[in-house]
Design a protein around this nucleic acid. Structure first.
Lengths: 83, 83
DNA sequence: GAGAATTTGTACGTATGTATG
DNA sequence: ACATACATACGTACAAATTCT
């Protein structure tokens, strides 16, 4: 799975989808994760702002939790927030 | 009500709070509204990105609806989305 | 405790694309 | 064709919180 700049889907959503898939598949286990924003931006060739937007989306979905100074973590059941 | 750059509250949240208050007070009636992103950014002395973040927050709260090419509108009951 | 390094948070500015009127 | 308005994406800078040395 990788980013396709030519696709109709926005880049930030493509990244969010990739990370969501990795979480749901267990590749990114509950507890902690998601390489830092800088790492993600380098790995996928995206601006940091774009990475942030993807992570914000995942946080709103309740999949991850972002903590300033620490990092971004996968929530334990993958849906702790709501719904 | 105006923006205070020195406050602890982020600028985008201050703007969102101002707009929310205007909506709930009826100053911004249901139907249509919110001066354009450009207008808001000039009126409050904020970057457009900051205005967008405020409007995104209000949209997530279900207070407004943003339509590309048209504008940002106040939702009818002020809480149509969720909860 | 001091200081550096890391990581997320906020804010700015700019450019281009897409949709509407 | 043109103007307006939101959408996406880039790059930069500094602040704030945490962790490590």
């Amino acid at each position: 799975m990788s980013i396709d700049p030519g696709a109709a889907t926005p880049l930030w959503r493509q990244l969010a989808d990739i990370l969501r898939a990795q979480i749901e598949s267990g590749e990114l286990p509950a507890g902690r994760i998601v390489p830092s924003e800088n790492t993600l931006s380098q790995q996928h060739g995206l601006a940091r702002g774009t990475v942030v937007k993807a992570l914000d989306a995942l946080e709103r979905e309740g999949l991850v939790e972002r903590i300033q100074g620490r990092g971004t973590f996968v929530r334990r059941d993958g849906r702790a927030g709501k719904e």
